[in-house]
Amino acid sequence: MHELGIANSVLTAVRTEMRRHPGAIPLKVGVRVGELAGVNPDALEFSFLSIISGTPWERLKLDIQTKTREHRCSSCRATFPVIDYRVACPLCGSSQTECVSGDELEVAYLELEES
């Protein structure tokens, strides 16, 4: 249950960004969570709502975008979705592939109302 700490880090990122926009009102923060990030989106949402409840951030919405896993083949350079953990290239069969998506844990954007 480390989603509480993750939620806190998201809020810290929002606070840091809001210092650059004095008087603005934060509306929504977008977070990208890859399937390999080890973060449960429901637990993250629950944690986020818990920490902003009763605070000036209470109306801030959390938009969680989940990302599925994609690998790129080191031989033929094809990018393909990893389904059921199969990381070998479905086109050329090479097992030398690298993760290009699916391990994200990022604050993607912040929407705010400028004063």
């Binding site: 993750i6 880090s9 998201v10 990122a13 960004e17 603005a24 509306l27 977070v31 844990l105 990022e106 604050v107 993607a108 954007y109 912040l110 929407e111 705010l112 109302e113 400028e114």
Partner: peptide, 14 residues
């Protein structure tokens, strides 16, 4: 409404 692209890692401090 303004959307600011952040693209920062949540655990960037860690």
């Amino acid at each position: 409404m303004t959307r600011i692209t952040l693209e920062t890692k949540v655990l960037s401090e860690n």
